[in-house]
Amino acid sequence: MTLALSGSDIAKQIEEKFPGSVVEATDQNLMVEAESLFDIAGYLKDTPGLDFDYLTLITAVDYLDCFEVVYNLTSIKHNHSLVLKARCYSRQNPTLPSVVGLWRTADFQEREIYDLMGISFEGHPNLKRIVLWEGFEGHPLRKDFL
């Protein structure tokens, strides 16, 4: 069984390395600032002992006052996992850094989030609609779509 690591424990390491970047840390998850998301993700991937070498999935949530993107990370090497989150508060142009450079899995999933939720991922090599067609108006998984 994969061990779910506590976000609070990892938050201490992150806070040492990237001061002021942790927004919220609980036993279930770790929420970080959008600006430092890419660096923290890279740190989680490459640090010995953490080695999150596998991105299980990315998903996004619309809380109306903000969008939350959730990264489920797994380390195949150590058989443990972590839920990483980041929020963006703009409704017109929500933007987060892309993690395609770290995990290729993120390619299609970030495109899906861009398609259905309208969140742009900066640095994505091919950010365009994946499920719906070009010319479709709006982002249907947003709560204010209809």
């Binding site: 365009k128 609609r129 067609w133 070009e134 010319g135 479709f136």
Partner: peptide, 12 residues
């Protein structure tokens, strides 16, 4: 992207 846009136009 041109191919996608052509497809999108046809669908619309």
């Amino acid at each position: 992207r041109q191919l996608d846009e052509k497809e999108g136009r046809q669908i619309n």
